[in-house]
Design a binder for these strands. Structure first.
Length: 188
DNA sequence: TTTACGATTAACT
DNA sequence: GTTAATCGTAAAG
């Protein structure tokens, strides 16, 4: 049984990343169940917080349980959950969700019908849920955000992270075992 | 001020 | 399998 109170955002990003699997995340009532996450920690070079605070990543240095939204490749928004205590600047990237709430809204925003392609990637799920830079540095336990814990602890698999060039060997990617909504399958 | 590049995606061959 | 799209950010000059 995973209750929302069991998710302590002041814990290490590894723990938070694993525990977020199965949790439902909504923005304005639209969203779904988290099936894939990645942990980032200032101790490793792949993290945006590795080089210290900047105008982009300041949200990571704020309180845990807040959002950190950044723009990737000039066109995609990516949603992160800040964890650890303020100043430590660790975070968890939400990489994929299983769409459950507001399917029509998400189809409209994404411009396609295939449920499987709606939210299977960090940029995709942000577009589907309407997340933009305006959602940066907001508390996740207050509107427009909403988190709903799952009834049972899900089976979680892990592997190496995707799309990075530093610290590529760390197995800090987590996913819901057997999910059809992952951005890429786990082979590890 | 200039420049190079990215925690990506989609559309190609 | 490869590559173009597209621009904010940060490091270099």
């Amino acid at each position: 049984m995973t209750r929302l109170a069991d998710i302590d955002f002041s814990a290490a990003s590894l723990d938070v990343a694993r525990r977020l699997i199965g949790v439902t995340v909504l923005v304005d009532g639209v969203g779904g169940r988290i099936v894939e996450t990645e942990a980032y920690d200032p101790g490793e070079a792949a993290s945006h917080s590795f080089h210290g605070p900047t105008p982009r990543n300041f949200a990571m240095f704020g309180p845990p349980g807040f959002s950190y939204v950044y723009r990737s490749h000039g066109l995609h928004w990516c949603l992160n959950v800040v964890c650890r205590e303020p100043g430590h600047a660790a975070g968890v990237l939400i990489r994929a969700i299983e769409p459950t709430h507001g399917l029509e809204r998400m189809r409209q925003r994404r411009g396609l019908d295939d449920v499987r392609l709606l939210c299977s990637g960090p940029g995709r799920l942000s577009q589907a849920m309407g997340v933009t830079g305006a959602h940066n540095n907001l508390p996740l336990d207050a509107p427009p955000f909403e988190l709903i814990a799952c009834a049972e602890a899900p089976a979680v698999v892990s592997g190496v992270r995707i799309g990075i060039s530093k610290a590529v060997e760390l197995p800090w990617r987590f996913g819901l075992a057997g999910s059809r909504f992952l951005s890429k399958p786990f082979r590890d």
